[in-house]
Write a protein that binds this DNA or RNA. Structure first.
Lengths: 211, 211
DNA sequence: AACTGCATTGACCGATTCGGACAGAAGGAG
DNA sequence: CTCCTTCTGTCCGAATCGGTCAATGCAGTT
């Protein structure tokens, strides 16, 4: 990468990055053409290759950029102060879907990068991906009071159900071209939490405030 | 389509169809190359174009073929005799995922055909898709006794949650390269039904046999 | 053996697309 | 005007694709 790229006015820099996220996010690597990226960024292809020596180095720059942004967004420390399982779920979901709402193309890019196997970039990717995933989930639920759960209910199972429901909800709305999907999601989220809390928590914990 | 295609020995005919499902199922239309289809079917490209005059007509033949198979599979009439909501859910899921297990490539193809917008085939597709979807869900839950539900619980919400959980489960296992995904799914399915029944049904219906 | 008719092959073609190179325009600073 | 950096648009060789077609193989008939 040409260092001068970092000196660019932010508006232009983001235009280029977002064009990359969009095109790499909706096409596989080989078919994501630099022509299209340059067009979406409203610059010439020559300039794109002036800042990034070749296609692959641009792609890898985008990946590291997204990686940083994601880490930075996930690893705020507020979650350490939340002790109720469902409260923490809701907090995490809020943050996750806020980010999705703000950077749709970036998340497309990340999702695709995740699943790109056997492509020309994958060699360099595989290591990075493996790391980025594991780091997160270990610490997250450390401060939660699991004694509220019934003995025969596995908290992690409830978490997975909740995640799948939210993702399914979102996926269906996107498929049918709906709007305001993230707002709608968080509206439903409380309801799902309420239902799952019924079956997961011991009775004496069911009446806690859920604002 | 060349009528002689139908006269082919079944093994060869299915080889060609499955190659088409696989390649169209994992690439978008333009990038799904007839070279690759012919190679996977173990025939020459010339022969493929001998049976199907061009790429598009082959694609459309595959779509109609899949459409027929799906309808035929969904519209058996057993579901009319099931009156318990969760029993019917499980029955439908079993059939759905049996089909998925047997025809993975075909379902990839269908899924992709669903989402292909603005591609060269889409004009011919849009009508067919719209029809195929609506026909199914209206009749399905007609014979179910909804009086078992608590008043503040919406059956359709429970169904959606169940569907999303199952799809999420399956997607995660496929993503992580697991095996025997459909068997594992149906093992978990009972557990999810049990949990959701707790919150959905009135108390007097909770002790029914669930074999 | 020779002929016939059809299934099947694979080399080939023109069109398109792509990554990348490069000559030079544009434009500000002195 | 000159110099320098930024930026453009065109061009090229390589690869890929849908589709064609002359040639081949091969079963059946005479």
């Amino acid at each position: 990468m040409n260092e001068q790229f970092l000196e660019l006015p932010e508006e232009k820099r983001l235009r280029i990055l977002n064009a990359g996220f969009e095109v790499f996010g909706s096409n596989e690597y080989k078919r994501a053409s630099t022509d299209l990226i340059a067009a979406k960024a409203d610059i010439s292809k020559g300039l794109l290759f002036y800042y990034f020596h070749n296609k692959k180095s641009f792609y890898l720059y985008l990946f590291r950029y997204a990686e940083d942004l994601l880490k930075q967004s996930v690893l705020d420390r507020n979650f350490g102060e939340i002790h109720d399982f469902f409260e923490l779920c809701e907090y995490a979901a809020t943050r996750k879907y806020q980010m999705l709402a703000q950077n749709p193309h970036m998340m497309d890019f990340v999702a695709r990068a995740f699943f790109s196997q056997k492509e020309e970039v994958s060699e360099e990717m595989d290591n990075r991906v493996a790391n980025a995933v594991g780091e997160i989930f270990t610490a997250y639920f450390n401060e939660v009071d699991f004694s509220k759960f019934k003995n025969n209910v596995e908290p992690v199972e409830i978490l997975r159900m909740l995640t799948w429901i939210a993702d399914g909800f979102l996926h269906e709305r996107q498929r049918t071209g709906k709007q305001n999907n993230y707002e709608a999601l968080m509206e439903h989220y409380d309801k799902w939490i309420y239902l799952l809390k019924q079956v997961a928590y011991k009775e004496e914990y069911l009446n806690e405030s859920c604002n």
